[in-house]
C-alpha cells in the first residue's frame, strides 16, 4: 500500500484533511499531515517547512510509494525541495499530485486502501478536478 502526505500552509487544515480522509476507508492507510511552521516563540504560523515534509515522507515511507498532496504556492516548492533532499531511489517512488487537497485526499485514501499503485491512486485523485459539485 502507498502512503499519503498532506502538505498545507495551515497545520489545522493538514491535520483535518488527514482525519477526514482517514475516516473514509475501512483499511487504515498510512497518512501524515504537515502544515504551518513553528516560530521562535513556539507559536504556529501559516507557512510550509520542507524539512518537515522530508521527515513525514521518511516516517511514512512505503516501498510502494508516497503520494504528496499540496495546497498551493510554497507548499509545492517545499514538497519539491523535500524530494530533492531524498536519496534517488526514494525520490523515484514519490509523486506530487495536481489533485485538489481535500477532495483529492479523500479519493486517494480510498484508492490507496484498495492497494492500487502510486500512479493509479494519483490518476484517480487528479480526476477529481473535473467533477462538478453542483449540477446546473
Amino acid at each position: 500500500m502507498i502512503a499519503l502526505i498532506i502538505v498545507s500552509h495551515c497545520h489545522d487544515i493538514a491535520e483535518g484533511v488527514c482525519r477526514l480522509a482517514g475516516e473514509m476507508t475501512q483499511t487504515p492507510v498510512p497518512i501524515a499531515g504537515v502544515g504551518g511552521i513553528v516560530d521562535e516563540n513556539g507559536q504556529r504560523q501559516i507557512g510550509t517547512d520542507a524539512t518537515a515534509v522530508l521527515e513525514a515522507i521518511e516516517s511514512c515511507w512505503r516501498p510502494a510509494g508516497v503520494l504528496i498532496l499540496v495546497d498551493l504556492g510554497s507548499a509545492i516548492l517545499s514538497a519539491e525541495t523535500a524530494l530533492e533532499l531524498l536519496p534517488d531511489e526514494q525520490r523515484e517512488r514519490c509523486l506530487i499530485s495536481n489533485a485538489p487537497l481535500v477532495e483529492g485526499a479523500v479519493v486517494a485514501a480510498l484508492e490507496a486502501s484498495l492497494g492500487h499503485s502510486l500512479e493509479d491512486v494519483n490518476r484517480a485523485a487528479e480526476a477529481v478536478r473535473n467533477l462538478d459539485k453542483v449540477l446546473r
Binding site: G47, T48, D49, A50, T51, A52, G73, S74, L77, T81
Partner: peptide, 21 residues
C-alpha cells in the same frame, strides 16, 4: 539552505534554499 527552507515558511525559503544548495 536547511535553515532557510525550515524557517522562512513562504516561497522565499525553498527558493533561497535552492540557491545555496
Amino acid at each position: 539552505a536547511m535553515t532557510l527552507i525550515s524557517t522562512v515558511g513562504g516561497a522565499a525559503g525553498p527558493l533561497f534554499g535552492a540557491f545555496f544548495l
